[in-house]
């Protein structure tokens, strides 16, 4: 089988084919797709960092219903509902500014300003920092995740801190 047949199985939908609405209490989604209403739908992000726009929707039994290539192209309401839920399921705040980074051997103390406010955390070991192209993912000692969306877009001082450390 060629790759094409496997891609067809993913069921990639056009943005206008679906509408999504959030079930705030259960923290799941309602999905209307091809005249069917699905309840308790859960979104999954296969590439939370490198391609966060790509989302797979799963039904309550855990089977895949369909995939959305770019959630930013959905209608406003659907998009807002989906993003709100994704924000809970994938909480990876973006670091806007690195105020201080102190390295003592294997241990790094970070003082940062994220899109969700100031945050100080500790990482340990080279493995806790992952570079994906121009992006950077940091896992702290408690398994919290942070990301730098574009190292090149950071302010001068933060960039210098990263460059002089890694």
């Amino acid at each position: 089988m060629t790759l094409k047949t496997f891609i067809e199985k993913l069921n990639i939908v056009r943005p206008e084919e679906i509408s999504i609405c959030l079930d705030e209490e259960k923290n799941v989604l309602f999905l209307r797709y091809k005249n069917t209403l699905y309840q308790e739908v859960v979104p999954e992000r296969p590439f939370p960092i490198s391609y966060p726009e790509f989302v797979i929707l799963k039904d309550s039994k855990g089977d895949d219903i369909c995939s959305i290539k770019d959630i930013r192209k959905l209608d406003d309401k659907s998009r807002a509902s989906l993003e709100k839920l994704l924000d809970t399921l994938y909480f990876i705040p973006k670091i806007l500014k690195i105020i201080r980074l102190e390295a003592t051997g294997d241990r790094f103390e970070w003082e940062t300003e994220t899109e969700r406010g100031k945050r100080t955390f500790t990482t340990r070991g080279r493995r806790s920092i992952l570079f994906l192209g121009n992006k950077m993912v940091i896992t702290d000692t408690d398994d919290n995740l942070y990301q730098v969306e574009d190292i090149g877009a950071l302010d001068e001082k933060s960039r210098k801190i990263i460059q002089s450390t890694f």
Binding site: L3, I7, K9, L10, I12, P46, F47, F54, S67
Partner: peptide
């Protein structure tokens, strides 16, 4: 991304 996921599946 869909190519990667399709191949992975």
């Amino acid at each position: 991304p869909e190519e990667i996921v399709a191949a992975a599946k």
